Amino acid sequence: MRILPLVLFLFSIHFSSLGQKMTTAQMKLGIEGADNSPLYVKDVLKKKFKIDTIIVTRTNFFNSLADSLAYKGQVKKVYGPYTQKGQRFLVQVLAKAPNTFYRVSQIFLDTSVFSYRFADSLSDNIISRIKKGPETFEHLAQSYSMGGETVTKGDLGWVAEGVLIPQIARELPRRKKGEVFKVWSANGLHIIKKTEDPKKDTGFALMMRVFL
């Protein structure tokens, strides 16, 4: 009569220590193969985890590891281990959802440096030179822009809807591909080029961090 409880007890010990005996590679395979990976991490691996919603703001020029994995990572795939602030962890992409992205370029004139009148006059001159040619938006962005986009010749890449400055976001749907126009904001004056028509792409990702 005592054999069955003893067997169950030994099985319980084996089950609870399974996660501790697994190698990192085995853990990754186990998580990827589980139908419910958070439950697998909790009940089988006995590891702490955290689920985060990551907003993809750009499809290039990523700001962090999370941004890069959210966009480039495959659903169900487990990546890592990574180390951050002394903590080792794995990352699994649980799900993705789309958003609208705009490809834009910018020449930014900072009105904390220039007067509004001068910035307005300079922007008209820049736009006129672009339209007349042979000077290009890219060349003039390197010469005049006062933002970090000087390094990329004005190119901001594909930027998610909802991330753009509201004044620019409102104007873009009204403009044609290749059109150059100016927009005022609290930060200054933005000369914008709508480089491409909008597209749907990965805009959100649900990701799980498993702490080792």
Rank of each mutant, 00 (worst) to 15 (best):
L90G: 06
K176E: 13
N125D: 05
I54A: 11
L206W: 01
F15A: 15
L69A: 08
G33P: 13
L109Q: 00
G147R: 05
V7M: 14
Q20E: 12
S17P: 00
K96R: 07
L65T: 10
T100S: 09
T136W: 00
A34H: 08
P166Q: 10
R103Y: 04
F49V: 02
S12Y: 15
L29P: 00
A169K: 09
L164W: 03
K47M: 05
T57S: 12
V210D: 10
Q106Y: 01
K76G: 07
Q87A: 09
K200A: 12
D110K: 08
V159R: 03
G178R: 04
A186L: 09
N63H: 12
R174F: 14
D120W: 00
R175D: 13
V91L: 06
I31G: 06
K177N: 09
E149L: 11
S17N: 09
A25I: 13
D52P: 00
R103F: 02
K85C: 00
K28N: 01
T152E: 08
P134E: 07
M208D: 10
A186T: 11
A34W: 05
R170Q: 14
Q74H: 11
A66I: 00
P198L: 08
G86I: 07
F114G: 01
M1A: 15
G80Q: 07
E135T: 02
L156E: 04
Y79I: 00
Y79G: 01
Q84M: 12
G30L: 11
K47G: 01
W158N: 02
I107H: 06
G147V: 06
L39E: 15
K177M: 13
S112V: 03
K194Y: 05
K176F: 08
K193Y: 10
N63S: 15
D124F: 00
F9H: 14
D197R: 08
F137W: 08
K77N: 06
S115G: 14
T111C: 04
V93D: 01
E196I: 04
D120I: 00
S112P: 02
R117P: 00
K21C: 10
K200S: 12
T202A: 14
K42P: 00
N125E: 10
L4V: 13
I192V: 15
V104Q: 05
N36H: 12
F101L: 08
D110W: 04
K47C: 02
S123N: 05
F114T: 00
L10K: 11
Y102E: 10
V78W: 01
R117M: 02
K182V: 08
N36R: 09
D120F: 04
E161I: 05
K200G: 06
K176D: 07
V7Q: 10
A66W: 05
G73K: 03
M207W: 06
L122H: 09
S16T: 12
F61Q: 09
Y82Q: 06
V104F: 03
P134Y: 10
I168P: 13
K46T: 01
I127K: 03
F108H: 07
S64K: 02
